[in-house]
Simulated assay, not measured.
Amino acid sequence: MHRIIKVKKSLILLILPFVFFGQDNDKQNSYYDWFDKVLGKEHTGLYNGKQYVDLDVNRIYENKNAFFLSDKVMLGSVTYDGQTYYNIGMKYNLEKDMLLVALKSATTASTIQLISDKIEEFVIEDFRFKRVVGSFEEGDLINGFYQVLVENSSYSLLKKHKKNRRKIIQAGKLVSYKFVSDNSYILFVNQGFKKITTKADIINIYPIHKKEIKEFYEAYKRLRKSDPDQFMQRLFRRVINSSSL
């Protein structure tokens, strides 16, 4: 398998200077995908994981499953063990914080649970996630995948998607499960991680923008309730922008 991967990389390196000159990223991605098809994804490093079986598939209450966006396979890309794979079928389990890829060969179809420590980042339906390892100032450890909401040279605003399991019990018997969202935001700034839970948290980090932050919260109350992600993105892009502490 390693020999095949090396051959793939060597072929790409030989051809890249000629075919990639003046091409955009989408064109490059199509060439990488073409090589994967020629060599067969069953021969790539994505099989360096373990078989996944969904034991909850027939016990989900009102389609409130554990996955990001959908429990159906969606196309995306993943940087895994130092190599990026494009147009991969995948699902992201938010209860267990694990990425699953759907791979097909000529004879079989498999769902593989990738090894989290080997994942650098992935994109699913245009949502970008990266693996974060570190700790908060209070000492709590961070180790998992976070969606990148805003990123520049001064800070990264990140969102942790999480779903918790709830039991549905009827007539004294466990009938099914539903999964409830429990999301949160963090900020990576000045080489450290900070929790973003309230307006006061943001003001404490950026006291120079105290007035503007309060005014923004007042002006965009409805947006904060209807679309908290967009609210946070607008707040940081318009008010905080690329400010340093």
Rank of each mutant, 00 (worst) to 15 (best):
F179I: 05
G192W: 01
N183E: 03
R222M: 08
F179L: 09
N190F: 03
T198V: 03
A171I: 02
K211C: 01
I203P: 07
Y206A: 06
Q170H: 08
A171G: 02
F193M: 05
N164K: 12
I208C: 05
K225P: 00
V189M: 12
Y206P: 04
R165M: 11
H209L: 15
I169C: 04
G172L: 12
S176H: 07
K225D: 06
K178Y: 07
D182L: 09
S226F: 00
K214F: 02
A219D: 10
E218H: 14
K211Y: 07
Q170N: 13
E212K: 15
I186R: 04
V189R: 08
Q191C: 03
K225I: 07
H209W: 01
Q170A: 10
P207E: 07
D182F: 08
K211E: 10
R166A: 05
G172W: 06
Y206E: 02
K210T: 14
G172F: 07
F216P: 04
I208T: 15
A219W: 00
I203K: 13
Q191L: 05
I186C: 14
S176V: 04
H209Q: 11
K214P: 00
A200L: 14
Y217A: 05
A200G: 02
Y177Q: 06
I203S: 05
K195D: 08
K210E: 14
T197H: 10
F193I: 10
S226L: 09
S181Q: 09
S184V: 04
N183K: 02
K225E: 12
N164T: 11
A219C: 00
R165W: 01
N164Y: 01
Y206R: 09
F193C: 07
Y177E: 01
S181V: 03
P207L: 12
I169T: 14
F188N: 12
I169P: 03
A200E: 14
V175P: 00
S181L: 03
S226A: 07
E215C: 00
S176T: 06
A171P: 00
I168E: 06
